[in-house]
């Protein structure tokens, strides 16, 4: 990542009653990147997003946007736009009026608003829908209008609050691809909130993993997945076999555990008895009871194993990772 820092967050805190929703966060967001805030519900990721947008005020700490401290500014004085979880389209306005809203508010000439809104409408492939009301659109179309309504303002940062949460799986996957392509095309910094680890891994340049109001780890999807720094991250992003081997605590991802009928080939291996096999389509998750006393999972392409079969499970040492307890 070579760009400069566009958003800089320092010691950010926010409580709701007794709950410390955001508990001291430092985060630098690089210009032009696709950053995902990933975490379970209640981990503080949405609150951070809402504080960047200006919907919530921090109890303490600062948010700097393009070099300017915006922590105490109202939303309408920040050069960011938001795509809301349930879209928040204005129900009494048609698609075009919704998209034009931000431009009209900022006092652009009518013609200018119209032509920019129509361009945005084309970008999201909804030409011909300009006079529809939001209620007459499908979920995916509303999603795209919400996106256009925000992007047409060319904000410094686009904030997306679980924007794909309400869509069905197929549409969701399609929108993930579209969204990523759109981000590359417009070059605007995206800050994307989700609790879906697959979504985070597939779309982001970097992921910040949230837990209990703190960032557990921040890094590229590959770093997060292959080198999780904490037990929480390893559990939340992908699955992990947590075992004791040769008196050492180690972690190994299920897809790195191979199954063979031959006996031990040296290196890292244990004997496993198949307890259960869960078919998940392209692959199968095999659950083993092992000779070292820890249950292990191996995710492999579909295999001819039967419950009760005794096999050798092995893996390469460099695929193991250590985490802080």
């Amino acid at each position: 990542m070579s760009g400069s820092t566009i958003v800089s967050i320092r010691s950010l805190k926010r409580s709701f009653g007794d709950v410390r929703a955001v508990d001291g966060i430092d985060l630098d967001i690089t210009e032009g990147e696709f950053l995902t805030l990933l975490g379970p519900s209640g981990s503080g990721k949405t609150t951070v997003l809402r504080m960047i947008a200006g919907f919530e005020k921090p109890d303490s700490g600062t948010i700097t946007l393009a070099g300017k401290d915006v922590s105490q500014l109202p939303p309408y004085e920040r050069d960011v736009n938001t795509v809301f979880q349930d879209y928040a389209l204005f129900p009494h306005m048609d698609v075009l009026a919704n998209i034009e809203y931000g431009l009209r508010v900022k006092g652009f000439a009518k013609q200018e608003c119209r032509s920019r809104a129509l361009t945005a409408l084309k970008q999201i492939r909804l030409e011909g829908y300009e006079n529809r009301k939001p209620a007459q659109l499908s979920g995916g179309q509303r999603q795209r209008v919400a996106l256009a309504r925000a992007l047409v303002n060319q904000p410094a940062v686009l904030l997306l609050d679980e924007p794909l949460g309400a869509l069905d799986l197929k549409l969701r996957e399609q929108m993930q691809i579209e969204l990523k392509a759109l981000q590359r095309e417009v070059g605007i910094t995206f800050v994307f909130v989700t609790h879906d680890q697959e979504e985070a891994l597939s779309m982001s340049d970097r992921i910040a993993v949230f837990n209990h109001g703190k960032i557990e780890q921040i890094g590229t999807p590959r770093e997060i997945y292959e080198n999780p720094k904490s037990e929480f991250v390893s559990e939340f992003v992908g699955q992990t076999n947590r075992i004791e081997y040769d008196g050492k605590k180690i972690n190994i991802r299920p897809e790195f555990v191979t199954i063979s009928r031959a006996s031990s080939t040296g290196g890292r291996s244990v004997q496993g008895t198949l307890r259960d096999a869960i078919f998940v389509g392209a692959s199968t998750r095999y659950l083993f009871d092992t000779s070292i006393g820890f249950p292990m999972i191996s995710t492999q392409s579909n295999n001819q194993l039967k419950v009760g079969d005794v096999v050798t499970l092995s893996w390469q040492e460099e695929k193991e990772f250590l985490v802080q307890q």
Partner: peptide
């Protein structure tokens, strides 16, 4: 979130009241 969205798009409170709240 309609009020949030209006502010987010740059509208001051009075504008939000006139264009979003009042019609709805």
């Amino acid at each position: 979130n309609l009020l949030d969205a209006s502010g987010d798009l740059g509208a001051h409170n009075w504008h939000t009241f006139r264009r979003i709240v009042l019609p709805l």
